[in-house]
Design a protein around this nucleic acid. Structure first.
Length: 359
DNA sequence: ATGTAC
């Protein structure tokens, strides 16, 4: 077991307990904890876990969840104006995809963001740390990007449930069959992010390009004859990854250089510091809805759900700079650019949410 | 995390 966090980076003991439990599973060879490590449901989040057998529960239900970055071009990006123009990403819009292109034929929720830590954010490139690398990606300071964090919605959940109903937390009896369904969910998740980018571009009157970064962080792959599970950990083996900050702090686009001891992975975000229940309780005492909807960096958060706003408050997360610092210090990644949010969409701004209506 | 489980 290797944990890639400096001694000053606080890691909840429950997450380390979960890592030890996973490390003790039959066939487990290596567990790598990322600096955003925190407890999950049964398995730690922010970990790369390598074993001789495939454990679907280590990937979790949101198979193929990931973060994509799309270059956006907009004339005058005024957050107050743009926030009112975001499409309702809680409901699908079939005019943005062709049914024939959808993996597993699952079209019901394609192009929707979901809940929890998922978000769609229009951001501006802030600090450029590696000019050459940023240039290769076509990025310069001040450029606009759309960051989309979402996954496979109900599809991945159904794939995990089909396994757990029979085998619980046990290994896949037919790894090839699981992997085939998993790969569909990974492709579906990536398409989901692209459909959302198209929807947002259309609604904002923006030009957008294909993603320059799109890495999922809940997945399993066969590597060196073993199953490399990633839960809240992105492929950091020569890949570029957007490590998400919070709704009100920058995010960092990094170049991954992670080796075997790190499970060829990098962190996927700031990592929760508080459980959702704690964040809700403490957040209500500490913040007003207004200060969570207009952040210290001047961005706006579109979120008609008060509870979600508190659960996802920046103070419920670790400091992203510390997480990135740990990645850099351990040689897992180098910084390329930071992004600073302008508008972050969490869920429609009206409560109760409108269903199926047009804007 | 989830057209969810208690």
């Amino acid at each position: 077991m290797s944990i890639f966090a400096s001694p000053t980076s606080w890691i909840e003991s429950g997450a380390l307990d979960q890592c030890r439990q996973v490390a003790a599973l039959p066939g487990m060879r290596h567990v790598a904890g990322m600096p955003d490590l925190h407890p999950g449901k049964g398995a730690p989040i922010g970990a790369a876990m390598t074993s001789s057998v495939l454990y679907p529960f280590l990937v979790g239900s949101d198979i193929g969840c990931g973060i994509a970055v799309f270059p956006f071009k907009l004339k005058r990006p005024v957050p107050e104006k743009l926030a009112t123009r975001f499409p309702d990403l809680d409901v699908p819009d079939r005019s943005f995809f062709d049914e024939a292109d959808v993996p597993a034929g699952c079209t019901d929720s394609l192009g929707t963001v979901g809940r929890g830590n998922h978000f769609v954010e229009l951001a501006r490139v802030g600090t450029v740390f590696d000019i050459d690398h940023a240039d290769r990606l076509g990025l310069a300071g001040g450029d606009l990007v759309l960051i989309v964090h979402s996954g496979s919605r109900g599809l991945g959940e159904r794939i995990l449930r089909a396994h757990t109903e029979v085998h619980g937390a046990g290994p896949a009896e037919d790894p090839a069959a699981y992997l085939a369904a998993h790969d569909d969910a990974v492709r579906w998740g990536s398409l989901n992010r692209r459909v959302m980018a198209a929807r947002v571009a259309d609604a904002l009157g923006a030009e957008h390009e294909p993603p320059i970064v799109d890495e999922c962080h809940n997945s399993v792959e066969v590597r060196d004859g073993l199953y490399l599970h990633r839960k809240g950990a992105a492929n950091g083996d020569g890949r570029d990854v957007l490590v998400a900050g919070t709704r009100g702090t920058p995010s960092f686009l990094v170049a991954g250089h992670a080796g075997a001891d790190a499970g060829y992975s990098v962190a996927h975000g700031a990592g929760r510091k508080m459980s959702r229940a704690d964040a809700l309780r403490r957040g209500k005492a500490k913040h007003t809805v207004e200060e969570l909807r207009r952040t210290p960096v001047g961005s706006l958060v579109v979120c008609g759900d008060r509870q979600l706003l508190f659960e996802e408050a920046p103070t419920a997360y670790k400091r992203i700079e510390q997480v990135i610092g740990d990645l850099v210090e351990h040689g897992l990644a180098t910084k390329v650019v930071s992004t600073v949010p302008l508008v972050t969409y969490k869920t429609a701004d009206v409560e109760p949410r409108r269903r199926g209506g047009r804007r």
